[in-house]
Amino acid sequence: MKLLVYSAKKFEIPFLKKSNNNAHKVTYEAEALSSETAIKAVGFDAISIFSGDDASSIVLDKLWDLGVRFITLRSSGHNNINLKTAKKLGFKIANAPDYSPHAIAEHAVALLLALNRKIIVANEQVHQFNFLQDNLIGFNLHGKTVGILGTGKIGSIMVKIMHGFGCKILATDLMPDSDLIELCDVNYTTLEEICIHSDIISIHVPLTYDNYDLINSKNLDLMKNDVILINTARGSIVETKSLINALENKKIGGYCTDVYEKEKGLFFMDHSKEGIKDEQLKKLLSFPNVLLTPHQAFVTKEALSNIAQITFDNINSWEEGKTAKNELGLDLISS
């Protein structure tokens, strides 16, 4: 099968090549899929896209007319693809779920520890030979109340890690996990209760219509003034305007994130020379109690290997005329 990989990053190509093992003719394209770059897929049976690619209706129409019939996502989330249009046209679509929930959960903890214990500030200071500790006060995680929004594959690992720190765990999920209740003494409750009582809140829910701007001014107002909010899920789950207002008015203690609601055209690129025009992001980055990483939680050797393997497992299944294990159907489309 001829496969075009959009948004191909230099660091992931070796993993993809290894998993392909010369079985398919693969072309790697650094540019993201868009209405303008869809034409590059002419002559290809399949494409692979990442979370920042545009697979909206108009783009899917173009891809179908060009002869593309299969789309495999190198991500778990698929909110960037119009599944209803894709299925109506006849595309076979599959994603890469559960590629490494440990990578994401561990990154969330790394963000928390780095912000709380002022690791970035300390590192900058000592490189200037400043060894004072005046601005480096943090707090113990032991004994703190941690709210986990979503206890799926990633959220459940986050629960176990924070339980290991000796934290009290509150959680919310449509399907409470009885094992977590027994093993980690998790107390399932409402989002409102989590916002009111938690010292730390970590987001691990998918971006859906219902979850858009889930963390808004109302919920931010309920939170403790020193709460640390962590987001390694999707940027649009947090309403950035309200978040900035909360940070300005010291209504929350800090924000750790690996995602941003308007990543398209910003993330996965180097803007160090020309700068950026997104004033909202500039404002967010201006706060000393904000730690943002560039959607890198998945960038571990294990995760990249798994993503590559799942990608070609999907392609191999279609090549053999089978249904891919991770194929997305109409039942996953929100009504």
Rank of each mutant, 00 (worst) to 15 (best):
T85Y: 07
I120D: 03
N306A: 03
L115K: 02
N231C: 05
G321P: 12
D98P: 00
G152V: 03
V146G: 04
K218S: 13
E29R: 10
K322P: 01
K17G: 02
P14M: 04
P206H: 12
E274P: 09
S242G: 11
V59F: 10
G265S: 05
D61I: 10
Q309N: 14
P206I: 08
H127E: 07
L292N: 03
L132S: 13
K283V: 07
G77T: 06
I47E: 09
Q128M: 09
I13Q: 04
L247C: 05
I119D: 01
A103I: 00
N140M: 11
L284Y: 14
L243Y: 04
E261K: 13
L111I: 06
G275Y: 06
I215Q: 10
L170T: 03
I93H: 10
N314A: 11
E248K: 13
L243P: 01
D331E: 15
N306E: 08
E279R: 11
E106G: 03
H142Y: 14
E279T: 15
F312S: 04
I230R: 02
G52M: 13
F298I: 00
S242Y: 14
I47K: 01
A86W: 06
G52D: 13
P294F: 02
T293E: 01
S48Y: 01
I315V: 14
P294I: 03
C256S: 09
N216H: 02
G147E: 13
M1Q: 07
G164H: 11
A233W: 04
I230N: 02
F91M: 08
V26A: 06
G329Y: 14
S236M: 09
V5L: 04
D65A: 11
T151N: 07
M269S: 14
A308I: 01
L243D: 09
G147I: 12
L328N: 13
S75Y: 06
T27I: 11
S335Y: 00
K322R: 11
D173F: 07
N80C: 07
N326A: 08
Y99I: 00
K241C: 06
E124F: 03
N123K: 09
K88H: 07
G321W: 06
L16E: 09
N187C: 13
I215K: 05
Q280I: 13
